[in-house]
């Protein structure tokens, strides 16, 4: 838009309002996380009576947070790596190779995205039970079961975005490599993937965020040993007393990995979307 004085006023007001909407909860989380317990037992105060880092120390002993953290990290990282790998392969095939069944494949994959998790939850639980019964492979309550589930959740969007991204890369790049004697797979690994890095990174972040924040399947498919952060954080509230300062401190700690990752790649995410998904 062209910057007339009217637009500048509108911009200042609009951006202030949006910033306040975003900042209020973030401020509440941060300020509560450095308050002593006495402060969070009464009416909310805008500032702590004394700033303390004690909640950040106590969170590790009140509930087995480290355990939950490791669980989330293992499950989310594996799901992300596998999901990106499968999406790169399928996305490339859809973008570059013509084959019978390409269109039904992408339609079916994409359409699974529209159904809520609740439709899959119980059947998946039953399938996992049955697999354990017949093959002896335990999937309920194990990392493996959750990894398989999460990697599939982000697949449709990832495939769709990456195939758009691959399609926007000039064909000549790979063709040049293939004339030089590289196989198609070699061209994919050595030429296309490096060029598509922004899109791949964006997809990886999307997968990570999706799995890190998942609640529904984690509530049924995990047990005491494999519980992830999304369910584990509830433990601060199910004690006799809600330790709001600790809950907020734990919230900060569990958000940091995704927030940092997100900030490092957000530029890629926007370019990735601009050239891949929204065109």
């Amino acid at each position: 838009m062209i910057e007339t004085p009217g637009f500048k006023v509108l911009r200042a007001v609009g951006l202030t309002v949006l910033s306040l909407i975003v900042l209020l909860p973030l401020y509440v989380i941060l300020v509560t996380s450095v308050k002593p317990l006495a402060d969070v037992r009464g009416l909310f105060t805008w500032f702590p009576s004394t700033v303390t880092l004690e909640p950040y120390v106590q969170i590790w002993s009140t509930v087995p947070l480290a355990r939950y953290f490791v669980n989330s990290l293992v499950v989310t990282t594996c799901a992300t790596v596998l999901s990106v790998l499968l999406a790169v392969m399928a996305g490339y095939a859809l973008a570059r190779l013509s084959f019978r069944g390409a269109r039904p494949f992408s339609l079916v994959v994409l359409s699974t995205q529209m159904f809520p998790g609740i439709l899959f939850l119980l059947p998946l639980f039953l399938i996992y039970t049955q697999i354990q019964r017949t093959v002896g492979l335990q999937l309920n309550g194990t990392y493996l079961g959750l990894i398989i589930t999460y990697l599939t959740f982000s697949l449709p969007f990832s495939i769709w975005m990456l195939s758009g991204f691959f399609a926007s890369i000039p064909r000549e790049l790979e063709e040049a490599a293939m004339i030089d004697g590289t196989s198609r797979l070699g061209a994919l690994v050595r030429v296309v993937i490096p060029v598509a890095r922004p899109g791949i990174v964006a997809v990886a972040v999307y997968c990570f965020i999706t799995a890190w924040g998942e609640v529904l399947f984690a509530s049924v498919l995990t047990n005491r040993d494999t519980r992830t952060l999304s369910i584990g954080l509830r433990s601060y509230a199910s004690q006799q007393d809600v330790y709001w300062n600790q809950l907020m401190a734990a919230s900060v700690v569990v958000s940091l990995p995704v927030l940092l990752g997100f900030m490092l790649v957000q530029r890629h995410l926007i370019t990735g979307l601009a050239s891949g998904a929204v065109k």
Partner: peptide, 9 residues
């Protein structure tokens, strides 16, 4: 290339 994603789906 699409088989692994297809199997998971």
């Amino acid at each position: 290339l699409v088989a692994p994603a297809g199997v998971m789906e």
